[in-house]
């Protein structure tokens, strides 16, 4: 597991049923592109998060395939429909096989 990976998500505490809300996610990760060289001229091996998904109670919201051209500390902002009270689950997949997860509940007011 890459060091210092910390996922952060911003989900409103409540919404009305059927409302479209904006979600923001940020995960600290160095996203080594595999293009850079160290001071000895050796290529630093690629180490990135290659996939990000967001689900709401098992139903998919967004599934992003990521390439090395995504910046350090990948940030995503997107919109989701809230059909009822439930839980958003965010998942990041690392090149080294690690999976980072974060869940946030949302209430329907």
């Amino acid at each position: 597991m890459a060091k210092g990976v910390k996922p952060r998500v911003k989900v409103p505490k409540s919404a009305s049923a059927g409302e479209t809300i904006t979600l923001k996610t940020l995960i600290s990760h160095k996203m080594e592109s595999g293009q850079r060289k160290d001071s000895d001229g050796n290529v630093i091996p690629r180490s990135i998060i290659n996939r990000f998904t967001c689900d709401f109670d098992g139903q998919n919201v967004i599934d992003v395939t990521m390439e090395p051209a995504i910046s350090t500390n990948p940030y995503f902002q997107f919109e989701a429909v809230v059909p009822s009270a439930g839980e958003f689950k965010f998942t990041w997949y690392d090149d080294d096989g690690s999976v980072y997860e974060k869940s946030k509940k949302i209430a329907v007011a």
């Binding site: 139903q59 967004i62 051209a69 995504i70 990948p74 940030y75 995503f76």
Partner: peptide
């Protein structure tokens, strides 16, 4: 750079990110 695949609960078919 990236491919956004939208699921059934996606609100607007839009996304923001930061790229190199």
């Amino acid at each position: 750079v990236a491919t956004f695949n939208f699921g059934p609960l996606s609100g607007a078919r839009a996304g923001s990110t930061r790229i190199r």
